[in-house]
């Protein structure tokens, strides 16, 4: 029963983070919060018994964050 509670909390957190990413005016903070999204997804995959997928998600979350931040040097940080 407790594991379901933790899963429900993590799923709600995923939805909350997604809404934050969509409505944020600062693109850099969106990228950083996306890291938290990736972390919650990793924990969920681990609880559902897929450590391989969790590992892939962790690695891809790290590298895509780096790519987004490098790409942000070109464009303006604030969206108008």
């Amino acid at each position: 029963m407790q594991i379901y509670t933790i899963e429900a909390i993590l799923l709600l957190f995923l939805i909350f983070i997604t809404i934050c990413i969509i409505y944020s005016r600062d693109i850099l903070s969106s990228v950083v919060v996306y890291c938290g999204f990736s972390l919650c997804a990793v924990l969920l995959y681990l609880m559902m018994g897929a450590p391989d997928v969790a590992f892939t998600e962790a690695v891809i979350g790290t590298v895509t964050t780096i790519f987004y931040i490098v790409a942000l040097r070109k464009i303006d940080r604030w969206c108008k």
Binding site: P51, D52, A54, F55, T56, V59, I60, T62, V63, I66, V70
Partner: peptide, 21 residues
């Protein structure tokens, strides 16, 4: 164990990416 070629490749490339950044 969990892991494989894809994950190892990305983790190896992180060294080069960080050093370049």
């Amino acid at each position: 164990s969990p892991g494989g070629g894809f994950q190892a490749g990305v983790a190896l490339s992180v060294g080069v990416v960080f050093s370049r950044l």
